[in-house]
Design a protein around this nucleic acid. Sequence first.
DNA 1: GAATAAATTTAGAACGATTCTAATAAAACT
DNA 2: AGTTTTATTAGAATCGTTCTAAATTTATTC
Lengths: 142, 142
Amino acid sequence: MRQAAVANEITELVRTAGLRPTRQRLSLAGLLFSGGGRHITAEQLHAESLGEGFSVSLATVYNTLHQFTTAGLLRELVVDSGRSYFDTNVSRHHHLFFEDSGELRDVSDNSVVIGDLPALPEGASISRIDIIIRVKNGGSSG
Amino acid sequence: MRQAAVANEITELVRTAGLRPTRQRLSLAGLLFSGGGRHITAEQLHAESLGEGFSVSLATVYNTLHQFTTAGLLRELVVDSGRSYFDTNVSRHHHLFFEDSGELRDVSDNSVVIGDLPALPEGASISRIDIIIRVKNGGSSG
DNA sequence: GAATAAATTTAGAACGATTCTAATAAAACT
DNA sequence: AGTTTTATTAGAATCGTTCTAAATTTATTC
Ligand SMILES: [Mn+2]
Ligand SMILES: [Mn+2]
Ligand SMILES: [Zn+2]
Ligand SMILES: [Zn+2]
């Protein structure tokens, strides 16, 4: 009954995003949203899915990640040119990026104060502020 | 005499970086460092160089940008996954990124205050803090 | 619960940015 | 000048990502 309840929540999540609850989307959503917050790349998620026995094509992983992002379930992070990370935590927060391992860790929004910014051009507006604290030489423990 | 003086400064800059002042490196350094601060991609610099009549291969543009970055003359920015920008301003500062046009504009370091960060693991240290203010719907004027 | 319509998945091709390779050319040194 | 070292280059290769068009699945209609 526990497992069924979780499955229903996931199904509901996908439905609410306006997407059909296909086997692939449910598997991926399960991997993404069943634990705590995650920061993951498309290739990582693909490998993890296959590892768990959920066969999905890489194209579908990309499609799904983008659909979830558009639906507001994920946020796309730019920390490394040439690789996109997706964050299951869509609330306002920032990141520690461990350059050696590629690991990302959340940083509370409270840790940062943005002072006076330059005036924006007519009609322009801030869509997001990304703060990335790049850390070198640190492992993933601690 | 003016032009010669500038050429000498550029030659000196390249030499100081520990690099031979080849025709290609001098042309590229001229384009990069003769005006004010610049934010530019490899392909943009390549096109600009050819446009000015300085023929260079794209491979050399990449090589040179990386060498200049290693030498501390440039800083590599990650604002767009799938494209690297290089910044001729290597002092501590942040960026406004106009998502529509791809333009980058500097933001003074004073505009931002970072509060208490989470403790870093043993031996880890901050290599850099990148702040990107993403702006949508704004032109490049004003 | 077939038939139909609409959306999804997929393998593989295509893409764009970047890096690599191995051959040529230029620069520095003797 | 001759020799050694370093740099440049064209083109191939790589990598992450997107596209294509066909096959499958899901939802809707009878
Ligand atoms: Mn994208
Ligand atoms: Mn690089
Ligand atoms: Zn996060
Ligand atoms: Zn800058």
